[in-house]
Amino acid sequence: MKILVCITHVPDTTAKISFTDDNTKFNSDGVQYIIGPYDDYALARAVELKEASGGTVTVLNVGTSETEPTIRKALAIGADDAIRIDAEPTDSYFVAEQIANHAKDAGYDLIMMGRESIDFNGGMVHGMVGELLGLPAISPVMKLDIEGQTAKLAREIEGGKEYLELDLPFIAGCQEPIAEWKIPNMRGIMSARSKKLEVLAPSDASEAVKLQQYELPPAKGDVKMIDADNVGELVKLLKNEAKVI
């Protein structure tokens, strides 16, 4: 089985977020980057599937050369080879186009990724790739087993769970508990440097959405404690100061 896992290169969950250039650019100064946590689940499950029944796992990232340490980590976790499409990932459509263009003739049995990135949290790329390739796209996949050419999966839906079955190939947007994150082991780390990391030029694609400006949420204001017996004061403040009623 030939699996493609698309990974994002995102700021660490503890990174402090700030912007530059009049709030139009993310300030990456001093920021540590990681594999998108949801993508990391997808990758872990892909490696498990490969270990259980053979095949290959290719990781793909749309990004500049700065993302290579993140890609190498994916190789250390157990992917066999990697592709970096050498472009700034401007918006979901642009990224989806790049993935679809690469995948359309590459013969993957399964394309996996996180249900969303954790920087822009669009959660759209899997659906767009499915549309562009004419394949089903399902998200969030929380359990995934493959039997022959059939995939059995589970996802949580409003008020319950649903169990699905469909034929390969398809696109899976994954989240926990599909697998447990894998810590790269020494052998993986040492073999990562000799695994193939192919850099491809981006295909012609344009972004569908242009970013105008970022804004940080307002700083948390002071908290006023009001005595439980003093409801009148509370109502007055909510009306006149907070202006919410």
């Binding site: 340490p69 190498r72 980590k73 250390a76 994150w181 810590i183 790269p184 082991n185 020494m186 780390i189 040492m190 990562a192 440097r193």
Partner: peptide, 17 residues
């Protein structure tokens, strides 16, 4: 090197997990 940093990260991840 990138590799040494990855080894360090593995140790850190192990402690955290």
């Amino acid at each position: 090197t990138e590799e040494q940093k990855m080894i360090a990260q593995t140790c850190k991840d192990f402690l955290e997990q």
